[in-house]
């Protein structure tokens, strides 16, 4: 349970030589849901980008027991570090099923892919109903489900979920959060990056608070939720 899956030590990353992230220390244990919260421009997306190796960084980064500092984006993806990108990023003109199959792009075992597809349809029955529909023609919530399903098709160890709640009705966000807890029960670890701090801390085990590129606070979700400073600054309570 408490085996470390992702470990960042003294991790810095940024754009064009300017560091946005200042020595981040962060760890995610196996089968945990960890929330990374913070306001606009705190560096959350930058951190995710550097995790999926699309931007460079320096420091120590270990995933599933080995350093992934040198890995390419394709390699970390194959190793199970998979993103559900912000704004869904579906292939609009493709059908739902084609989108899901794109998630399994780097996998070769047809039988296993078929099994994953059935599993995703079990998790999202709505996606099964709409499997032949053009993904761009679905509602925002359904598109988010499709994006999550697609990420699951890649057989992830760690799911990086970026701004899942963006532009969605609260009731839909609740449904999606529930699905994340189900996914966790099935052995997939989740790093949930959110501006909607309240929603994220509802389901998370632990949380990190980011402000202008540094982690200012961390602790169990309950601790953070009850922290007077956070209540005041982010929750408006």
């Amino acid at each position: 349970m408490s085996q470390v899956l992702l470990q960042l030590n003294n991790w810095c990353a940024g754009y064009a030589g300017v560091d946005v992230l200042n020595s981040i220390d962060l760890s995610v244990n196996q089968c945990e849901i960890v929330a990374l919260v913070g306001s606009n421009g705190a560096g959350k997306t930058t951190l995710l980008r550097s995790l999926s190796r699309t931007i460079k960084g320096h420091g120590e980064m270990r995933f599933a027991g080995r350093s992934i500092y040198e890995d390419t984006p394709e390699k970390v993806f194959e190793n199970g570090l998979v993103q559900v990108p912000e704004g869904r990023m579906l292939f609009d003109q493709m059908s739902v099923q084609e989108n899901l199959l794109m998630g399994a792009y780097r996998r070769a075992d047809k039988a296993a892919i078929k099994h994953s597809l059935e599993h995703v349809y079990e998790l999202f029955p709505k996606m099964f109903e709409r499997r032949h529909q053009r993904s761009g023609s679905m509602s925002g919530g359904e598109q988010q489900m499709c994006a999550m399903g697609r990420a699951l098709m890649a057989n992830p160890k760690l799911l990086l979920v970026d701004e899942m709640s963006l532009g969605l009705a609260p009731v839909i966000v609740d449904q999606l959060l529930e699905i994340l807890t189900t996914i966790r029960q099935q052995g997939i670890t989740v790093l949930l990056v959110e501006q909607d701090i309240y929603a994220a801390l509802e389901i998370a085990d632990r949380g990190y608070v980011m402000v202008t590129g540094s982690i200012t606070q961390s602790g169990s979700a309950t601790e953070l939720k009850n922290d007077p400073h956070i209540r005041e600054a982010y929750l408006g309570l």
Partner: peptide, 11 residues
């Protein structure tokens, strides 16, 4: 269809 998404799917 979506180059960013393709990249995030390991293409």
């Amino acid at each position: 269809e979506n180059e960013d998404a393709a990249q995030s799917m390991g293409v």
